[in-house]
Amino acid sequence: MLRWAVPAFLVVQAGVLGLAWWAGSGLLLALAELAALTGFACLVLLAQYLLLRGRYTREREATRRAVERRRVADEVHDLVGHELSLIAMQAGLLELRADAADAKLAGQLRAQAEHAVASLHETVALLHGTAPDEPVTDDVEDLVARARQAGARVTLHGDVDRVAVPTRLAVHTVVREGLTNAARHAPGSPVAVVLSTSAGTHGDVVEARVATSDAPAPTAGAGRAGHGLDALRRRVTALGGHLDARHHDGTHVLTARILAQPSGDPLRSAEPVELAGARPLRALVRQTAVPVVVACAVVLGFWTWASHDTTAEPEVLARFAVGLPTAELDALVPQRQAPVRLARSPEPPPGSTCRAWTDGNFPLAAATVEVCADDHAVTRVTDLAGEPLW
Rank of each mutant, 00 (worst) to 15 (best):
G92F: 06
L317K: 06
E328R: 14
L96N: 07
A306Y: 09
G240S: 02
V154H: 08
V340A: 07
R224D: 15
A295K: 02
A125Q: 07
V285C: 06
L267G: 13
A215V: 11
E95Q: 14
G129V: 13
L52I: 03
V163F: 09
A295S: 11
T255G: 03
P291I: 01
P272E: 02
L45E: 11
H227L: 15
E207H: 08
Q90D: 10
A131L: 08
P350I: 05
R355F: 08
G323S: 06
A183L: 12
V124F: 04
N361L: 12
A106R: 05
V292G: 11
V136K: 08
P135G: 10
V11T: 06
E59H: 04
T167R: 01
V80L: 15
M89Y: 14
A118D: 13
A365H: 01
T38H: 06
V316T: 07
A145P: 13
P7C: 07
P291D: 04
V253Q: 11
G301K: 14
D161Q: 14
T255M: 05
L109S: 14
L179S: 06
G264M: 09
T130E: 04
A20W: 06
Y49C: 07
V285E: 03
A343W: 05
C354M: 02
R65Q: 07
A327I: 14
H376V: 01
P272A: 04
A111R: 08
G221W: 12
G107R: 05
E59M: 02
W22G: 12
R148H: 04
Q13G: 15
I87F: 08
T130Y: 06
E68F: 02
P166H: 08
H308E: 05
E141W: 07
V160Y: 00
